[in-house]
Design a protein around this nucleic acid. Sequence first.
RNA 1: GCCGCCGUAGCUCAGUUGGCAGAGCAGCGGACUUUUAAUCCGAGGGUCGCAGGUUCGAAUCCUGCCGGCGGCACCA
Length: 465
Amino acid sequence: MGDEPAPADIFAVRRRKLEALRAAGIDPFPHEFQGVEPIAAARAAHAGLSPGEETGALHRVAGRLAARRGQGKMAFVDLVDRSGRIQLQGRVDELGEEGMERLLALDLGDLVGVDGLAFCSRRGELTLRVRSLALLAKSLRPPPEKHHGLQDVETRFRHRELDLIANEEVRELFVLRARVISSIRRFLDGEGFVEVETPVLQPLYGGALARPFTTHFNALDRDFYLRIATELYLKRLIVGGLERVYELGKDFRNEGLSPKHNPEFTMLEYYEAYADYLAVADRFERLMAAVGLDGSWRRETLVAAIRERTGIDVMAHHDRDALAAQMRSRGLEAPREDSWAELVDELVSKHVEPTLVEPTLLLDYPVELSPFAKRHRSEPGLVERFEAYAGGMEIANAFSELNDPDEQRARLRDAGQPPDESFLQALEQGMPPTGGLGLGIDRLVMVLAGRPSIREVVLFPAMRD
RNA sequence: GCCGCCGUAGCUCAGUUGGCAGAGCAGCGGACUUUUAAUCCGAGGGUCGCAGGUUCGAAUCCUGCCGGCGGCACCA
């Protein structure tokens, strides 16, 4: 082409190259490139080469152009795929003038496919000497900076694809997340659980205490809710005799954003007929071992945990004003409008939860805080429930499920929850004694990956428009 | 919703007391057949988040708005 002046616009340069390719009869967006081998596999095939050693082994790889060094008659470029990075060597005596020119015309970020001979460079780096090279897709935007990666948090979350291109550890994290989820499925499938899907769009919401998102069903001219939990539908399946069920999917809660809260989040719930919460705790520990969180979980009762941290015995002051007085006498805030149960909740979240960095199961909650849990068999006023904490964060919640329909109706009334008649009818049909668990997948991944924010483990976290 | 911090080139970041808008990477032109953040020469690239205000003069000071982060509140 002509010798146009140096273009000011960094985007226009790439556009111009695209047009030049088309003009030269090269399709900048071809349809396929088959027979590709992962870069990691090509590397593994030549693990022990010494500097300067040639192999004669031909490999076909594909990926994104990530760096280049040298120009003229010989150039090195780095190619990255999901599995890793490999250096390519282009030589004019191998590719010819025209081929070399095409290689040098590539931009960082272009997707290319390569057939090349494996050898070890003088500096000891496994390299593919390019035999032939195909542009697989032209990149029209410059990639993020190659040394520092993409740092800007807003861009990383709004354009996660750039984050994935630029930051290898981000790529690894989301692969880890996928492996965690498939490990959970494999574990539960292996234990005889059936994976089910229940409605996301619900005429009535329940199974947790949270504000829902509301939407409108036009055909019925009626408001619907996005589910806040799968609990009630799953228990109906236990009534139906499925015995062991689980669902892995999104819940939606119309609450504030924080490093621990995204409005849509991934939840595992499972229910197991004939189990109580201690059986659930044992299975939970094995499930955690299956995803790499080994070891036994410290167990502590909620009442003891509060007493140990604050000196207050909440069951000995089972009265709103008495408990508030206890708290105030110790210099703790006790908001006037809070009920006894809310004060207990306050004590747990302010004084117990932050101390639970080591994996811990907190057992036996007050009945007022747990409308779906069965009364404790020996501790009056408590229910058989545990919450699992790790990294100072609640990651799971489990109980012996309440299966007495009359008591369930009364508990929902006391909690100010709308009665879900279909659910209550199901309990009237007869639900076996059942243990259930809810596990926050995002938070679990935070713990496993050591990330301080839920946004780091959700591909596209909620952002303002 | 409230409070605090932040927003400068495609990316990573400087920018002094209010006095001409800067660097590195990337990109462009050129040199180079073993480079590893390649090197060297040359020429470019800006809505300083947006809108007002103060001032002879604003990236810098003030107000409002938008967006992000952190905290509080709500909650899980």
